[in-house]
Write a protein that binds this DNA or RNA. Structure first.
Length: 455
DNA sequence: ATCGGCTCGCGCAA
DNA sequence: TGCGCGAAGCCGAT
């Protein structure tokens, strides 16, 4: 692995260890940023210290996300220490606490390595933190299979990025080499460490100064082991059904891994490798799944990284901005308030069921998520209101929200990475979706019944 | 049940 | 410069 891109200073100055800050990829295995930090440490004869944090000043901090993240911590600590690395987890319980642990740890580090991540808070950290610490700072892309840098520019759509990804895939679709640390971390653990065990998670969450009105997901428990369990289940039960049923939500044939991908409990790389191996062994064609996991996911990261902004209508292609502007003042026969959306109180039973899935589980099935978004456009006073509502609901409830993928999914509803269609009110030439269409293609009633039963 | 048109623009072949 | 075709469709004609 090359040592590249120093954003501030040069490695080689003094320090007691190399610090890896698990900002977006909260895992020890299959992590290129951590592997890079380990190589740097070995090169300098220093130990590796891994830092994972959870903050309450995050604008959407609530019980759901806190619980999910905390559930991953004991396993990360165990695996980090098994490598011979140091591990510090710090939960800042109060909104007023400064982010002083990172700065303290960084002040004794030879270099800070972290995750490049083109959205939400991590993106802001990577822009602001380097200037505040006096040591070299390396953000490494540990999220994508083909690193964002290897594409290097904003792509217009799946059809333009696909050939580039496939051309580069052989170079990158291989396991991250096992990390072996030459120097064990033997220093005393820094005092500011929050001990997390399966038993004290609920107590830690309750004591945090966060929004306690969004309960933990009823469906998804966080952590590496849970991610691995779901991957095994998907391979065994659903990979062979995926091509046929991925757009039939009532069949539940999708991987259910997006929450774990979002928090980095598992990597897209290891999922792709496991899927490819299982598919070869069992003579399954996995192309449809790998297209979603690789091409479309990486298109989303490409958009977030190289587009002007991942969460703004300004980032749409010109034809979409034009047609939306033309229809900005169209009459909206039905308009719901944010509260009506949030409480799943529309006239449409399918839409309400998708919103209930979001409220209860923290995800919406990928296919219905598009319908969910299209209807919010139809039922909002302005396009900007619709975007604000979608981002608000995702940021607040979706475990896989605040992610390049979800922002891209949301903007897709406004024409991003899509093409124009027959002009119609409100939508202009943006693709429209209807309840009749959903009924024609999917078993709407089975899905609604499943959401009702799940209460 | 199936089919074509709708409508724009990228990237490639020529 | 022309041409094919695209992230998940709709609608009306047959």
């Amino acid at each position: 692995m090359r040592i590249e891109r120093s954003l501030s200073g040069n490695p080689g100055s003094t320090g007691e260890y190399v610090l890896y800050w698990a900002l977006a990829n909260r895992r020890i295995e299959s992590n290129r940023a951590l592997a890079f930090a380990a190589e740097l440490a070995n090169q300098r004869g220093l130990p590796l210290l891994i830092y994972e944090a959870l903050t309450c000043s995050h604008p959407c901090a609530n019980d759901r996300f806190h619980t999910f993240i905390l559930e991953g911590v004991p396993e990360n600590q165990r695996r980090a220490e098994a490598l011979g690395a140091g591990y510090v987890f710090y939960l800042r319980k109060s909104r007023r606490d400064e982010d002083e642990v990172l700065y303290k740890l960084a002040s004794k580090a030879m270099a800070v390595v972290t995750d490049e991540y083109p959205a939400y808070i991590p993106r802001e950290y990577n822009a602001s933190v380097p200037a505040k610490i006096g040591v070299p700072y390396y953000p490494v892309d540990a999220s994508c299979i083909v690193p964002m840098d290897a594409i290097g520019k904003q792509e217009y759509g799946a059809h333009t990025i696909r050939p580039k990804i496939h051309r580069l895939l052989d170079d990158h679709l291989k396991p991250v080499p096992r990390v072996r640390l030459k120097t064990k971390f033997t220093a005393r653990r820094p005092a500011l460490h929050t001990s997390v065990t399966p038993d004290n998670i609920a107590k830690l969450v309750a004591a945090s100064e966060i929004d306690h009105s969004v309960p933990p997901s009823k469906e998804f428990a966080g952590g590496r082991r849970e991610a691995e369990r779901r991957l095994r289940f998907f391979l065994k039960e659903n990979l062979r059904r995926y091509a046929k049923f991925s757009r039939e939500p009532s069949e539940r044939a999708t991987s259910q891994l997006s929450p774990y991908l979002h928090f980095g409990h598992i990597s897209a790389l290891e999922i792709a490798l496991a899927v490819r191996e299982y598919a070869t062994e069992h003579k399954i064609i996995a192309d449809e799944f790998l297209e979603e996991l690789i091409v479309r996911r990486e298109l989303a990261f490409n958009f977030a990284r190289y587009g002007p902004k991942p969460d703004s209508l300004d980032a749409l292609p010109e034809w979409a901005r034009k047609t939306l502007a033309k229809h900005a003042r169209d009459e909206r026969p039905v308009v719901y308030s944010r509260e009506q959306f949030e409480t799943a109180s529309t006239y449409d039973p399918l839409w309400n069921a998708t919103q209930k899935e979001l409220l209860r589980n923290g995800v919406i099935h990928g296919y219905y998520r598009m319908y969910w978004g299209k209807k919010i456009i139809e039922w909002s006073r302005t396009h900007q209101d619709a975007l604000d509502t979608m981002i608000y609901l995702h940021d607040r409830y979706a475990i896989d929200g605040r992610d390049p993928n979800t922002y891209t999914n949301i903007l897709w509803c406004f024409g991003l990475h899509d093409r124009p269609w027959t002009e119609r009110p409100i939508f202009g030439m943006i693709r429209y979706m209807s309840l009749d269409g959903m009924r024609r293609k999917t078993d709407v009633d089975a899905y609604i019944a499943a959401q009702e039963d799940a209460r």
